[in-house]
Simulated scan of single mutants.
Amino acid sequence: MTESVTVRPARPDDAAFAVPLIQATIGHIGLALTGAATDAEAQGVMLEFFVRPGNRLSFQNVWIAERSGEALGFLLGYAGVDSEALDEPFREHLRGRNLPGNVVSEGQHGEWYVDTLAVTGAARGHGVGARLLQEAPAQATAQGLDRVGLLVEHGNRAAKLYLRQGFEVEAERVLGGHAYDHMIHRI
């Protein structure tokens, strides 16, 4: 892997690459967000949302890392202040399925929120995740924000990457019965 990794904004046609990685990364959150019983069902719902603007999982909130035209991973993020509005389409989806529309918005006001970071198995350990994380402060700064935030589930080895990239644990949060560290990177 000698060529450099580039990062570009996602397009709707990136759905087939990004959506399976999203569900593989967020797991139980994806099931709750979509009201699905299986990963395959959740991916089907996410495919519909990915191509539409104005929701948490929209291509508009995704940056794709690639090398020589091959997608290697992605960063999904947005201004924390927008979390409630970006989650509303999922609440509507759940209510339309006669399920409670209990979607807990994760992003905090004052931060640019890294919702999901994922790298393909073959690209792990080659700096792709670190390269993607470099996009977060640039997006935060462009929106007048001075910090980047994310949640990492306790025991997730990605926490080491975040610490190396300058994130610090600010607090603990519990979502859906799972414990997470809320990590912040000040710009």
Rank of each mutant, 00 (worst) to 15 (best):
T2K: 11
E170C: 14
A71N: 12
P20R: 08
Y78N: 06
A171S: 14
T38I: 05
R124M: 09
G129Q: 06
A10D: 04
L151A: 04
A40V: 15
D39Y: 05
L151S: 05
E84M: 11
E168I: 06
R147A: 12
F50M: 01
D115M: 03
D181L: 07
G80D: 02
G166D: 14
R186W: 10
E70I: 12
A79S: 15
P100T: 15
H154K: 11
G127H: 06
T25M: 05
V128Q: 01
V103T: 10
A65T: 08
V104Y: 12
I22S: 01
A179C: 10
V62E: 00
H109G: 10
G73I: 03
M183S: 09
M46Y: 04
P20A: 09
A179Q: 11
D181M: 07
G177S: 08
A158W: 12
T34W: 01
R173D: 14
V7N: 09
L161E: 14
R11E: 01
F59M: 01
E172G: 13
L57K: 00
A71P: 10
G30S: 09
V51P: 00
P100V: 15
E48S: 07
I29R: 03
L163Q: 15
H185L: 14
N156T: 11
G80Y: 04
V169R: 13
P20K: 09
N156Q: 10
T25S: 15
A142S: 15
I26N: 04
H126A: 15
G96M: 05
L21C: 07
L132H: 05
Q23M: 14
G121P: 03
I29N: 05
F90P: 05
D115R: 02
W112Y: 15
L163S: 11
A130C: 07
V119Q: 01
V119A: 01
Q60V: 02
T38S: 11
P12H: 05
F90Q: 06
G129F: 02
G96L: 06
D13E: 15
M183C: 13
A32E: 10
P53R: 03
G155S: 10
G54R: 02
G80V: 02
G155N: 14
E168C: 04
D39M: 06
V114Q: 02
V114H: 02
F50Q: 00
E153I: 14
A65N: 08
A71G: 11
G101E: 12
L133C: 05
N156R: 09
A18L: 03
H126S: 12
N98V: 12
E170K: 11
G30N: 10
Y162W: 08
T34R: 04
L133V: 05
E168R: 13
E48C: 06
V19H: 01
L75M: 08
R91V: 15
G177F: 13
E88S: 12
L76E: 00
A122E: 14
E135W: 01
R56M: 04
Q108P: 03
A36S: 09
F17W: 05
G149S: 14
T2E: 15
Q108S: 11
S4F: 11
L163K: 14
G166R: 08
R124Q: 13
E41L: 03
Y113Q: 04
A37M: 09
A42K: 06
N61V: 00
A32T: 08
E170R: 12
Q165H: 09
I184S: 09
E172V: 11
Q143I: 07
D146V: 06
E48P: 03
W63M: 01
P100S: 14
E88Q: 13
G35Y: 07
V81I: 12
A15E: 03
V114L: 15
D82R: 09
Q43N: 06
E168P: 00
